[in-house]
Structure formats: structure tokens, C-alpha cells
Write a protein that binds this DNA or RNA. Structure first.
Length: 496
RNA sequence: GGGCCGUUAGCUCAACAGGUAGAGCAACUGACUCUUAAUCAGUAGGUUGAAGGUUCGAGUCCUUCACGGCUCACCA
């Protein structure tokens, strides 16, 4: 049926309810219990006992199914994700309430007062005494059996996805629990949660293209942050020795199953510790989060069972290329050799690519997908790590790790560079890269260097991509499955 | 940005080789006082994503565009 006809039919019913004197959008309804509680408390009681106790309830929810049988009807109502059957009999309700029932559509909200009983087939059900109309749905819900599968509609009208698909609901409940578990863990460790600017005059803390905006009153360009890192370290300079922030980052880059322009990042910094301490902390934290949010220490991802019990494997970037990339130490020292390999894999790399960037590229190609079990990859080239501290024994390498689980990059951490002179040098080098055309090279941030000049203690810092972690914990293949409203190209009109 | 695939009723999907666009659910009318994907009888519902083209004839073939998915490239 044409959509406007469906809506008009429902509007007509709405008017009929009004003409009966029914308040069609009332303010509130006093429920005696959420449906879930009723089920928890009474679903085990035998029918005879239910009848003897004659338990009175006032429940409400959205009507999701109706089965009329002449002068009686069964319906299911849903609230809080739980479903309960209600039973309306013409001889048990007032004529007015019965008329209200006849005007109900799937999707409407109702409240019922009645008595619990068990049907012949054993289902816990409310025998309705009074029926209250709570809100009208003018548009139909997705089909009851197949639900809503059109991916575009699921993302554009997430409310329908949430109504029709229990898995979607589950993912976002779990996402909430995961974030809460991170907070609880860090709070217990003595970390302070802070909020730092989303709008920054100089976008820093990562190598990525920013979104740009303009502040009228100040008449300046501002950038949506690509990372909170430099602000969090300013706080450590200020004596907030353990800080964390869970918030949005924005990167003006491509959209894919692994990338959304805005995404959620946990970053945390701890004074007097280094990247080794961060690895220990990460192991404890991920296990704690899994146990709290999932109730177990193992996850399933892409058909693989993965244990999050420490210790996690630790291997240097270089050794990982030897182990999984089957490269020799000699090859790893030669850009020409690596270029040959890259070309052999038909990777598109520019001939003037630097050795460290080439290594990283080969890592992504050859190694990353093998890192199913939690694995810390350590010791990155300095060139791609402008904010990390060098290793004492090899100044070309920094004290940094990335954590991979299920082949996904989950965390990135390092011993923070706290030498202001060296930091300035690194920024200057980045400026040269930028001048050479690297749009993602880091900006010079004099104010940040100035902060370092006041003294940053030895500090370990880490960022964890919350969306990817939620993907991992919910076995989701696309980041859009774990972001309620992922970025899509806008489309005219509602509903499509 | 490139490649591949998709877009048909409110939802989920059909439609041979180019020959009158169909089903289930939802909706509407009627029957039915323990159903649960209720059942039964009937009714209505379509600019086949958009615009062009080929053809006697296009959901189907061609071109362009829009939106989406996957993938490659780019990118932490």
C-alpha cells in the first residue's frame, strides 16, 4: 500500500481516539515494574500459584504483535528490550477500552492494568483490566519476521534497526558496558578523567588530516582535534600525574569498514612510567574489561577464539617482519631489497619512500593479519614516531608499541618524549616532511614545546581505539556496526 | 578516486531468453472468546532509485547520474 495511505489510516485512527475523549499523547504512565522484572520474578511460578496470588501489575510498552480472535485478542508489548504478552477480552474491559484496542496499530504504545496468569500453552500473560493509550505510531514498523536487513536503512534509521534487530541492541549495550569498565578500571588505578579541547588552533598528537572550521568572534581558524595527546601531556606537566580521556577524535580521511571520520579514543598518561609499564597495564586492563563487560576472559572474532589472559606476546617490529614476513636481517637493512619485495607484492610505493615507512608498509601487508593472539609489536622507527622517546641503545628506534588483536590495531603507546630540545628538532623534521608534500606530517606546536620546557616527568602514554575494541568484543566486521550513527552521505528526505 | 555488486509494494524477496510486475508479512473489510510467524474468506496497494537511449515492446539491454555494500588505493 502506498505509504501516505498507511499513514492516513493511522491518522484517522488517531482522530477517532481523540473523538472518544482519549488523550492520545498523555504525559506519563505509572508502571509497577519494567517488563523484565515481571519476567524475572514470575516466569517460574506455576499457573495455579499465579492464579491464587492474583498478582496485579501495571505495565507499558510498544505493541509489536497482535492476534485478534473475535472478541478477544493477544498482543505482545515490549519495553526495556523485554517482551510480554497481554490478553484483552471484551467481557473483561470497559466498552471504551475495548474500542481503544480496536484502534491500535503495531508500533503504538500502551499501558495495561491487569492480573498475571499463564495461558494454556504456559506463557506468562497479563489479563487486561484497564487499557491506557500512551502514544501513536504514524508509520509502520519493519516487518516482524525478517526484520530490517537493508544496510543503508539500518544506518540511516538506526532507531528501526534497534527495534527490529536484537543484535544491534546487544552491541550498543555492550559498548556502554565496555566504556564503563575502562572508566572503572582507570578510576581504581588512581587516574583522573579529564576533558581537553575538541577545537584546537594547532591539530596535534597524531599524523592525520584535520577538519577545519572558523571561529567568528576570535577570527581564527580552528581544527577539530585529531588526538588529545598534546593537551593531556600539558596536564601531566601541570602535576596531574595520571590522567585519561575517553572522547571523540576527528580525522578528515577516507571512510571504510575500519575508519569513521569521528571515532572514540581512550588516551591515558602516567607519570614515572614507560612503555613497558604501559604493556603491563594494558594486559591487566583488557582482561579486566573483558571480564567485566563480557563476563569472560576470551572473545570470539572472525571464527577464532582469542584469550585475553596475560601475558601477551611481545615482539619487535623488526623481528615480526623476520618471523611472519620471512625477511632476512640483511633485507631489512636495505631499502633496495625491501622495495623489490614491495614491488613483488605489487604494493604501490613511491621510490623515494623512506626505509622506516617502507618497513611499516610491509608490516601491514605481511604481518598484521597474522596477529590474532594479542601481540605487542615494539620498537618503531623514530621517523614515524615524532612524539616518542628514543631507545638508549639505538637512537633510530623509539620506545613504542602497538597492540594487535584479531588482526586489528587496538592500541598505540610509547614512552613520551619529554626533552623539549629534541621535541623541537622532531617537529622541525616533520615540517620538512610537510614541505616535501606529506600532508599528514605533524605540525610545529611552540606552545607544546614551551610546556615541555617547564618539565614533563618521565611518562608513559597510550591510546586505545574504542570502536575497534568494541568491534573485537562484539565480533563485528565493520566499524559502522558499533557506531550508532556512522557517517553516510546525506540523502534528501526522511525514510528514503 | 578505481574495480565489482546492488537499488522492484511500508518491510523481506520473486519475475525464464526483452513480451500484461508477483508472493509473504504489514494494511483494509468480514468470521472467530487461550493465540503466538494465529487461522479462514475477500480487498486495496507499484513512475521497478533518476534521466536519457535502443526496440513494435524494457524491471530485464546500452549510456549518464544518485545512493549503498564489498574491495583496491590513500590513510594510523
Amino acid at each position: 500500500m502506498e505509504r501516505s495511505t498507511l499513514i492516513n489510516q493511522r491518522k484517522a485512527k488517531l482522530e477517532k481516539l481523540r473523538s472518544l475523549g482519549v488523550e492520545v499523547y498523555p504525559r506519563r504512565f505509572a508502571q509497577s515494574h519494567p517488563i523484565e522484572e515481571v519476567i524475572d520474578r514470575y516466569s517460574q511460578l506455576p499457573a495455579e500459584e499465579l492464579e491464587k496470588k492474583a498478582i496485579k501489575v501495571q505495565l507499558c510498552g510498544r505493541v509489536v504483535s497482535m492476534r485478534g480472535h473475535g472478541k478477544v485478542a493477544f498482543a505482545h508489548i515490549v519495553n526495556g528490550g523485554s517482551k510480554l504478552q497481554v490478553y484483552i477480552r471484551q467481557d473483561k474491559v470497559s466498552p471504551r477500552d475495548y474500542e481503544i484496542y480496536t484502534l491500535l496499530d503495531l508500533g503504538d504504545f500502551i499501558g495495561v492494568e491487569g492480573t498475571l496468569f499463564r495461558t494454556r500453552t504456559g506463557e506468562l500473560t497479563v489479563l487486561v483490566g484497564n487499557l491506557h493509550f500512551l502514544a501513536k505510531a504514524l508509520r509502520p514498523l519493519p516487518e516482524k519476521w525478517h526484520g530490517l536487513t537493508d544496510v543503508e536503512l539500518r544506518y540511516r534509521q538506526r532507531y528501526l534497526d534497534l527495534l527490529a534487530n536484537p543484535r544491534t541492541r546487544h552491541i550498543f549495550y555492550l559498548r556502554s558496558r565496555i566504556i564503563k569498565a575502562f572508566r572503572e578500571f582507570l578510576d581504581e588505578e588512581g587516574y583522573l578523567e579529564v576533558e581537553t579541547p575538541m577545537m584546537q588552533p594547532i591539530p596535534g598528537g597524531a599524523t592525520a588530516r584535520p577538519f577545519k572550521t572558523f571561529h567568528n568572534a576570535l577570527s581564527i581558524d580552528l581544527y577539530l582535534r585529531i588526538a588529545p595527546e598534546l593537551y593531556l601531556k600539558r596536564l601531566v606537566v601541570g602535576g596531574l600525574e595520571k590522567v585519561y580521556e575517553i572522547n571523540r577524535n576527528f580525522r578528515n580521511e577516507g571512510i571504510s569498514t575500519m575508519h569513521n571520520p569521528e571515532f572514540t579514543m581512550l588516551e591515558f598518561y602516567e607519570s614515572y612510567s614507560d612503555y613497558n609499564d604501559m604493556m603491563d597495564l594494558t594486559e591487566r586492563m583488557l582482561l579486566a574489561v573483558a571480564e567485566k563487560a563480557l563476563g569472560e576472559s576470551r572473545i570470539s572474532y572472525n571464527g577464532r577464539r582469542i584469550s585475553l589472559s596475560p601475558p601477551f606476546r611481545r615482539i619487535t617490529l623488526r623481528d615480526s617482519l623476520i618471523k611472519w614476513g620471512e625477511l632476512s636481517p640483511e633485507q631489512l637493512n636495505s631499502k633496495e631489497e625491501l622495495l623489490k619485495i614491495a614491488h613483488g607484492l605489487s604494493l604501490q610505493v613511491e621510490d623515494n619512500i623512506s626505509l622506516p615507512k617502507l618497513m611499516n608498509r610491509l608490516f601491514e601487508e605481511l604481518v598484521q593479519s597474522n596477529l590474532i593472539e594479542p601481540t605487542f609489536i615494539t620498537d618503531y622507527p623514530i621517523e614515524i614516531s615524532p612524539l616518542a622517546k628514543q631507545k638508549r641503545e639505538d637512537p633510530a628506534i623509539v620506545e613504542r608499541f602497538e597492540l594487535f588483536i584479531g588482526g586489528l590495531e587496538i592500541a598505540n603507546a610509547f614512552s613520551e618524549l619529554n626533552d623539549p630540545v629534541e621535541q623541537r628538532r622532531r617537529f622541525e623534521h616533520q615540517l620538512e616532511e610537510r614541505a616535501k608534500g606529506d600532508a599528514e606530517a605533524h605540525w610545529m606546536d611552540e606552545d607544546y614545546v614551551n610546556a615541555l620546557e617547564h618539565g614533563l616527568p618521565p611518562t608513559g602514554g597510550e591510546g586505545i581505539g574504542i570502536d575497534r575494541l568494541v568491534m573485537l568484543f562484539t565480533d563485528s566486521k565493520s566499524i559502522r556496526e558499533v557506531i550508532l550513527f556512522p557517517q553516510l552521505r546525506p540523502r534528501g528526505g526522511a525514510g528514503a
